[in-house]
């Protein structure tokens, strides 16, 4: 079972969390009218086989958003921190 060490709650099964995708994505500023930037943000993914920085929300725990570094080829988690501390987009 994939386990995630929540900085608030400790090590928990991944089933307590909701996966929320690539944390490297930078959301275009709200006033950006270039549809190409929005297309890139919504649709295109690096989807790497290897280290991946991603958002998870601890929905069945402290409900905090986390940035998790996980290797998608092995499911090894290298690090976890609160998203509010930065490290996301």
């Amino acid at each position: 079972m994939l386990k995630i060490a929540c900085p608030g709650c400790g090590v928990r099964n991944y089933t307590e969390f909701r996966y929320a995708g690539d944390a490297n994505k930078v959301r275009p500023a709200h006033q950006v009218r270039d549809l190409g930037e929005w297309y890139d943000y919504v649709f295109l993914f690096d989807n790497p086989k290897g280290p991946h920085r991603e958002y998870w929300q601890h929905v069945l725990g402290c409900r905090q958003w986390l940035v998790v570094e996980r290797d998608t080829a092995t499911n090894t988690v290298q690090g976890t921190r609160f998203a509010r501390d930065g490290g996301g987009e």
């Binding site: 991944y14 991603e54 998608t72 499911n75």
Partner: peptide
């Protein structure tokens, strides 16, 4: 339910 290349299920 999350990105994976592991070919091993949870």
């Amino acid at each position: 339910g999350f990105n994976s290349y592991t070919q091993r299920g949870q």
